[in-house]
């Protein structure tokens, strides 16, 4: 089944066209690796998917349904709902420096739970008032409080599980500055997983790391196999090994796409061949 389809993505910064019509699709549970030279538009593509940039043209379909169309104008609230379908792990981690690892993972979910509890209380109060139940306000407040407490407990538990999954259960009370780059990036991965996005994107997750730390992060990503993921990477060996599908980008277009065997083993395009030769892959 097809999870993601991107159609006709175009993006201009001032006068330079960074994406010149990008189309691709990604089946559910598959891993897409995007490779390409610096400046070819890989980061811009991920940022458009996560609604950090608005493309000038293009459509995103999720599970066959239109999620976003660049020509439509979305309200902040709608945009936030759409954003939640995608997760993004940044090159530079971007952890929140004033929260411990666990709080970094749980924060967004906690804020959402609080909003939900507020709605829950409002609706319950309205319902109780309409049924003329005595002490409606107090009851609604107490119920909402219990609801929130349960939710927050679940969230803490889940955050702990996710940290455990990326091998950091011992570090849940550490601040980001107390962690190595590799550990920080794994916290960032757990944070992105917390909201259980339909498509999880990684923008060169290991390129800010010392070589000896890249393995632990790649291992964490590998352990997520089964999720629909897009990984922009300079690690050709990793792309070759874990990806179900590889896209080679050059100058804002998809120059070549296919299985790792096709793209790495028998590239059709001269540009792909040149790129891989420079990387020592051919």
């Amino acid at each position: 089944m097809e999870r993601l389809r991107v159609e006709g993505f175009r993006k201009k910064f001032h006068d330079t066209e960074v994406l010149k019509g990008v189309d691709f699709c990604l089946p559910k549970g598959e891993i897409l690796a995007i490779i390409g030279a610096s400046g070819s538009g890989k980061t811009t593509l991920l940022r458009c998917l996560n609604f950090l940039e608005t493309p000038d043209a293009g459509k995103i379909y999720l599970d066959g349904e239109l999620l976003a169309d660049a020509s439509a104008h979305y309200k902040e609230r709608e945009l936030r709902e759409k954003r939640k379908k995608f997760g993004l792990v940044f090159q530079s981690f971007n952890l929140f420096p004033h929260y411990r690892a666990e709080k970094n993972v749980s924060l967004a979910a906690e804020l959402m739970a609080k909003e939900e509890a507020k709605d829950f209380r409002r609706n319950l109060k309205r319902e109780l008032l309409s049924q003329k139940v005595p002490r409606a306000r107090t009851t609604a407040r107490a119920e909402a409080k219990a609801f929130l407490k349960k939710r927050l407990e679940d969230i803490r538990l889940r955050a702990g599980e996710l940290l455990c999954k990326v091998g950091l259960s011992e570090k849940k009370d550490s601040y980001p500055y107390e962690l190595s780059g590799g550990q920080q990036q794994r916290v960032a991965i757990a944070r992105a997983l917390m909201l259980d996005p339909e498509v999880l994107c990684f923008d060169e997750p290991t390129s800010a790391l010392d070589p000896e730390l890249t393995d632990e992060v790649l291992r964490a990503i590998r352990s997520l196999k089964g999720r629909t993921m897009i990984v922009v990477t300079h690690e050709m060996a990793f792309a070759r090994e874990v990806a179900d599908k590889v896209i080679f980008m050059a100058d804002g277009v998809i120059e070549e796409q296919g299985t790792p065997e096709e793209v790495f083993g028998d590239p059709k395009s001269e540009k792909t061949r040149a790129f891989l030769r420079r990387r020592g892959e051919q």
Partner: peptide
């Protein structure tokens, strides 16, 4: 860093939440 705002956005936080939960303490510091 812009990345702090963007990390909040990607996690579906509202602008107010980003300001008070992510930015404010760092700003105060």
């Amino acid at each position: 860093p812009k990345g702090q705002f963007e990390a909040g956005q990607v996690l579906g936080m509202t602008k107010t939440q980003i300001f008070f939960r992510v930015i404010f303490l760092q700003l105060l510091r």
